[in-house]
């Protein structure tokens, strides 16, 4: 008898389970008229600080914003963000380096989604792993601080290519760091042609209104009649 192993063709996405949950979540959030952001970046690029300023400004404009924040441990970020007055929940990943769609779905329980306009998800600080996991967001936002070096997009192409928008943070430090802003923009466009880019400083407030204007515009465009 001959030994011919059998081959079964499958052709399924390895993360199809996460993708299915993410699709369901996206449909659900959109049905409630919610605009959802997934913020990704390396640790220390200023996600929580940008989010603090973003939540505060959205609340001041009368927009109902909720936030989910992912970390390996501690609820420090949720405590910081809660000062904005927006409902905030911490997702503890217990050592995992990224958020998954199921974690988002679990942490929405008990929130009145009909009242919510914008949902901000702060991913775990990591420029590699979160790129593979769809969280059901409308827009993936990659943050990049001027202190990280102009070539960061070239070093981590997967995450920058999979992001829809980039926010350059800490622009008040650009001069002190000798940051070549032109090179930074060129590198973002090289990895993600046509990417929309915002320049911000959470410390001075520069660029924040334009960023918040964009979020409000995006939410309005997706709003469903109630």
């Amino acid at each position: 008898m001959s030994m011919t192993p059998r081959v079964l063709e499958i052709r399924r996405q390895v993360l199809s389970k996460n993708d299915e949950i993410a699709r369901g979540l996206r449909d659900r959030l959109r049905a409630h008229g919610i605009f959802t952001l997934n913020l990704v970046s390396s640790p220390g690029s200023g996600k929580t600080r940008l989010l603090e300023e973003t939540l505060r400004r959205l609340v001041a404009r009368g927009i109902c914003v909720h936030a989910l924040v992912g970390d390996l441990a501690t609820d420090n970020d949720a405590q910081r963000l809660a000062r904005s007055g927006a409902p905030v929940r911490q997702i503890l990943t217990q050592g995992r380096c990224h958020l998954e769609a199921a974690m988002i779905a679990q942490h929405l329980d008990g929130w009145d989604l009909d009242a919510c306009d914008v949902l901000c998800i702060e991913n775990v600080g990591n420029l590699v792993c979160p790129s593979s996991y769809d969280l059901g967001e409308d827009v993936r936002v990659a943050l990049l601080s001027v202190t990280e070096g102009e070539d960061k997009p070239l070093k981590y192409p997967a995450i920058f290519n999979s992001s829809d928008v980039a926010v350059i943070t800490k622009t008040d430090l650009a001069e002190a760091c000798d940051t070549d802003m032109r090179a930074l923009h060129d590198n973002l466009q090289a990895i993600r042609p046509g990417m929309r880019v915002f320049e911000t400083s959470s410390r001075t407030g520069a660029g924040l209104e334009a960023w918040v204007d964009y979020l409000v515009e995006q939410w309005r465009a997706r709003e469903v009649p109630r």
Binding site: M1, M3, T4, P5, R6, V7, L8, E9, I10, R11, R12, Q13, V14, L15, S132, S162
Partner: peptide, 19 residues
């Protein structure tokens, strides 16, 4: 360029086992 796909599985069955 964004693929992360399980394409196929190669396996033996009892019939394939050498006698």
């Amino acid at each position: 360029g964004r693929e992360l796909e399980l394409t196929s599985i190669e396996y033996d069955t009892a019939e394939d086992a050498p006698r």
